[in-house]
Every structure is written in structure tokens, then in C-alpha cells.
Design a protein around this nucleic acid. Structure first.
Lengths: 209, 209
DNA sequence: GCGACCGCTATACGCGCGCATAGTAGGCTT
DNA sequence: AAGCCTACTATGCGCGCGTATAGCGGTCGC
């Protein structure tokens, strides 16, 4: 558990990047302005250009930063003894931490590919473990299952506004987090389809062509 | 199965709205321009303002249109004998049809609330049915489960670019659709958590406070 | 027949934005 | 001390956009 450094101590470049992550996450890339980002970072707008060249490049830098971050945490999770990471969704959300708004927006726009792909990789490894104790052989590539599972896990982050409204509690708050965790445990422990229903659906699918 | 009317026959207002749905879905609200929408609709940009007043109001009109659309289809699904609606995700995706890009973007921005809420309502009814044959009593409000399940079902739509890349096939294509369907059947018929694991996780959660 | 209205176009305005340029201060090298 | 590079600011430009306004033809009510 490392303490976040005093923003005063961060280099201007890092402060700009952090401000951009916040502004892009809060307002979206298009609505966010370089001037606003500069103000939050406590620098002139010219310095933003000096360090990053353009608004697009600034966004790329944000994505790169998150890519590195998630790779680091990914390695850490992988090398840990996996104590009680029952909650895949919670892991995904906690990994992203305060950058959830940015990541949610970026993913929805098809960006932050490294973040998504890294989560898929992590998911693949878990599924590999899971498959060892699975009775029936999977008919679907592991990567496909990992990709869909990852998307599902991320849906709470991407759709958090709707989730908060429907749940009646802000999902980023402690209460929301708890309700969410309980709900996920319930859902993940109860298959929506029985094996017969699944076989039926599979047959219907094959028949359809 | 009704045939889509010839665009020539649509009123200008409807053509503008359809063009807006397309442009907003393709480029996002901010990048889309009234001039571009007008051109696609085959009208002057002034007419857009004449009919809708402002760009924001145009978007509201799009959301209203989709809200009505999904309510209509929702009622239809509800009154149907539910033949083989094994695939909740497929239902959600097919309901939205060609407006998936727009809906995905709108949802990610916290908009199109009616669409989300209507899908939650539909999901709630299915869960109500599901609960009748469920052995253990649910510890979580039905609405919460419906909301999370809906978000998960929508994740494929919202994150379709990443899904397509990870799956190696465009999810909106027939092949992608089939792979997706098979994957969903597999996932929905295999709980990620055993009941013991779920109980353990639940206990850990309660202990944590 | 005539005014009121509606659907629609053409044109223009003004603002906010990304981007560019010129300039300043300070520290490092030689 | 001279030169220079880096970090940084101040100022301005130009473009694209949403928005506003003026006007035109057709049609309906009276």
C-alpha cells in the first residue's frame, strides 16, 4: 500500500496527465478543454502543448500510462497467492481505482485497448484454472469466454450511472460497492441456463445454420 | 416482419432524426455536426434547427424515439409466448437493431435512461419466473440482480469494438453473432462460483463490515 | 383572393477551441 | 562568461461549429 505523492511534488508533466485523466473522465474527451486541464494542473495551456504536442497525443499518453499501470498490477495479481479474489468484477474495478470514469469512457469509445486486452489475458488464466475442475469440455475458445466475461465485468464501470440509478445507491460509494458485491456473488453462483436449456439453445443454434 | 419504409417517403423530420441517430452513433454526439446530419438527411442545416430547435434537443428527440421503440417491443415480447428466448443478450441486441452504436454511446454517457430501465423491467420479469424454480432464496433484491444482469447483457453492445478485436471477428456480422451466442450459452450455463465459494465470499463480505 | 402559417433554404455572426509563435527565466556545459 | 537547452508563459490567429435571422414558395382557412 503506497501513499499517493503530494501533487505539489509531481512534475508538471505528470500533473497535466493526471488532470487530463480527470477532465477526460469527467467531461469526455471532446468537451474537455486544454485550457481547463492546464488550469487544474496549475500550468499554462502552452505547457500542455509543449509536453504533449496535441490534445490527441495527450490522450494517447493517458492511455499509455494506464496500460503500464494495469500491466504492473496484472503482474502483481498473477504472482500473488490469490487469497480470496472471488470477485472478478471487484478486482477489475479496484485495479482501475480512481480512473474508472476515464476508463469507462475510453473503453466505450473503443480506446484503451491495452487495458481491455490485459484484463482478457488475466481472465484467460483464471478460466484455465476453472476449466480444470469443469466436468463438460468447453465448446467455445477460451479467449472468447474470457473476452465476454471481461466485457461483462467491465459493464458496471462503463454503465455506472445507470447502475447507480437502478440500484438506488451510488456504485462508487461503500454501500453501493457492498450491494454490488452481494449481487455479483448471487449472479455468478447461479447459472441463468440449466445444462438442458443450454443444450437446447445450442441445438437451436446449430439448426439455424 | 414489417419492411422499412423508403427513406424518400419519410417526412423530413423523421429523416433528420434517423440521420442524427446514425451520425451520433458513428461519430459520437460531440463530433457529429448539424451540417453533416442535414446533408445525410438531404435537407438544409437550418431545417434541423427549425424542427428540433437545438442539437441537444435533437438528441433528446432521438432518445425519446428509442424509448418509445423499446417500450413497444418490450410489450410485444411480454405478450408473446416466449418461444426460445434463451439468449437474453441476443434479445437485447436484436431489440436495438441498427441503433446499437447510438445506444451503446448514449448508455456509456449516462443517457437513454428509458432504454436501460425498460430492459431492467423486462429482466425483472424473467428473474421473477426464474426464482420460482430456484432452490435457495435470493439474498439480494430482484431489481439489483436485474440491473446488473442488464448491464452485463448490454456490455457486448457498449464494448463491441473491443469484443470484435478480442474475438477476431466483427460481432455485428453473422459469424460474430454466432460465436457470441455460443459463448454466451456457455457462460450462462456455467456458474463462475460454486455455492460453497459463494458462501465463503458472502461470509468474507459480512465480516468485512 | 388574401393573410397566416408551415416547411424549407441561404447566409451570416460570434464564440470557443486547438494550435502556433514569440518570448522569458534559470540552470548546465564549455 | 558565453552559449544553449529546457521548462514555462503570454498572446494571438483561424477555423469550425452551433445558432440566429431573413426570406421564399406553397397551402389552407375564411
Amino acid at each position: 500500500m503506497t501513499i499517493a505523492p503530494d501533487p505539489e511534488d509531481l512534475t508538471a508533466r505528470a500533473r497535466i496527465r493526471d488532470a487530463a485523466l480527470w477532465h477526460f473522465g469527467e467531461h469526455g474527451f471532446e468537451r474537455a478543454t486544454i485550457r481547463g486541464i492546464a488550469e487544474t494542473a496549475g500550468v499554462s495551456s502552452g505547457l500542455v502543448r509543449h509536453h504533449f504536442g496535441s490534445k490527441e497525443a495527450l490522450r494517447d499518453a493517458c492511455d499509455d500510462y494506464l496500460a503500464k499501470l494495469i500491466r504492473r498490477i496484472n503482474d502483481q495479481v498473477r504472482s500473488s497467492p490469490m487469497p480470496s479474489d472471488v470477485n472478478y468484477v471487484a478486482v477489475a474495478r479496484n485495479l482501475l481505482g480512481p480512473h474508472q470514469p476515464y476508463v469507462g469512457r475510453a473503453l466505450a469509445e473503443g480506446r484503451a485497448e491495452a487495458v481491455f486486452d490485459e484484463l482478457v489475458r488475466l481472465s484467460e488464466e483464471w478460466i484455465e484454472e476453472y476449466d480444470k475442475s469443469r466436468p463438460d469440455p468447453p465448446q467455445v475458445p477460451r479467449k472468447a469466454r474470457a473476452a465476454v466475461g471481461t466485457a461483462m465485468a467491465l459493464s458496471v464501470t462503463v454503465l455506472r450511472h445507470h447502475m447507480s440509478r437502478a440500484l438506488g445507491v451510488e456504485v462508487l460509494s461503500p454501500e453501493g460497492d457492498k450491494l454490488l458485491a452481494k449481487t455479483l456473488i448471487d449472479i455468478y453462483s447461479h447459472p441463468m441456463l440449466s445444462l438442458e436449456d443450454a443444450a437446447k439453445a445450442q441445438a437451436a443454434l446449430d439448426q439455424r445454420g
